[in-house]
């Protein structure tokens, strides 16, 4: 159904930069309904929505192709847990700019070359320079 959501920039709301610092917000109780889903679902209301991942949230953009989020509880296999990498790929595919804080990536021991394709690696001080491009900055 991602084809029903077109590129960012069709809505009348102000251009917004969403800053995410906190990565993990539940799995079984959240499933698809997590912060990145919210951005994917709501961005049609705004002229533009971009995302800045900082702190532990940069791990959402670390490319990973083996792990499948799934858990067995009783006789049920729940394979609808948050797929953050998939959501970051969706954000990029739908024309969000996804900034990833370089210092946080290296501080956590990840390779800056191994991020989801299309994300933009940024030095921490550079992000603040981009704030004037947006009418609002949200700390999500």
């Amino acid at each position: 159904m991602s084809s029903t959501t077109t590129a960012a920039g069709r809505g009348s709301g102000p251009p917004v930069l969403c800053v995410l610092d906190r990565a993990y917000r539940g799995a079984v109780e959240a499933q698809f309904f997590h912060a990145l889903y919210g951005l994917l679902d709501l961005h049609g209301q705004f002229q533009r929505v971009d995302v800045a991942l900082r702190g532990a949230a940069v791990t959402l953009a670390v490319e990973e192709d083996v792990y499948r989020p799934s858990v067995r509880l009783g006789t049920m296999t729940l394979d609808t847990l948050p797929d953050y990498r998939g959501s970051v790929r969706d954000l990029v595919a739908e024309d969000f700019t996804v900034f990833v804080d370089r210092d946080a990536v290296t501080a956590l021991g990840f390779d800056p070359q191994r991020l989801v394709a299309g994300t933009v690696l940024l030095d921490p001080a550079e992000l603040a320079l981009r704030w004037p491009e947006y009418d609002q900055v949200w700390f999500v």
Binding site: M1, T5, V28, F32, Y37, D41, M76
Partner: peptide, 27 residues
């Protein structure tokens, strides 16, 4: 079930209470 997933309206997403009920029944 959880509220509809607008990006996957046909998907099955059990609510937290359904998960707990299922674990109690299966337990």
């Amino acid at each position: 079930t959880k509220l509809p997933n607008t990006r996957d309206p046909e998907g099955h997403y059990p609510s937290p209470s359904a998960v707990v009920q299922r674990m109690i029944a299966d337990g």
